[in-house]
């Protein structure tokens, strides 16, 4: 099953990176959201794929009865999902703020910090 997941992850990553190279903040944001999924799938696949058996120990048992899905990548991804959502929300609000201040979502026109016509630094002493 892993080769299929490897392919799927590659597609997710391609789309995410393509979107992130856009000049427009909203597209970049969508790219960031997809990138989160791509990376989660990457971790999930690296931990090997196991169909349908969640890592839950049945009642009365001390260890799982048979082979179960790898719990470690799941634990990693679970927190990663919540954190990437927090950052996505932060980036979203940040770009909304940038838009309402600068009136554009084109990063080429956001030049406050590094203006195009910045003067030379002072040459004197």
């Amino acid at each position: 099953m892993e080769p299929v997941f490897a392919l799927l992850t590659g597609i997710f990553l391609t789309i995410a990176i393509y979107l992130m190279m856009s000049k427009f903040i909203i597209r970049m944001l969508i790219g960031v959201a997809i990138l989160g999924n791509a990376v989660n799938l990457l971790i999930f696949t690296s931990g090997r794929i196991m169909r349908e058996v969640p890592p839950v120990i049945g009642p009365g048992l001390d260890v799982p009865a048979g082979p179960v899905a790898n719990p470690l990548p799941q634990a990693l991804i679970l927190t990663a999902i919540v954190i990437s959502f927090s950052f996505f929300a932060f980036l979203l609000v940040l770009s909304w703020r940038a838009y309402s201040t600068l009136g554009t979502d084109n990063t080429d026109e956001m030049r406050v910090a590094e203006p195009d016509d910045a003067p030379l630094p002072p040459l004197g002493y």
């Binding site: 969640p54 839950v56 679970l78 927190t79 999902i81 919540v82």
Partner: peptide, 8 residues
Amino acid sequence: HNEPGGGF
């Protein structure tokens, strides 16, 4: 703690 679920 025992079934799918939890704080998140």
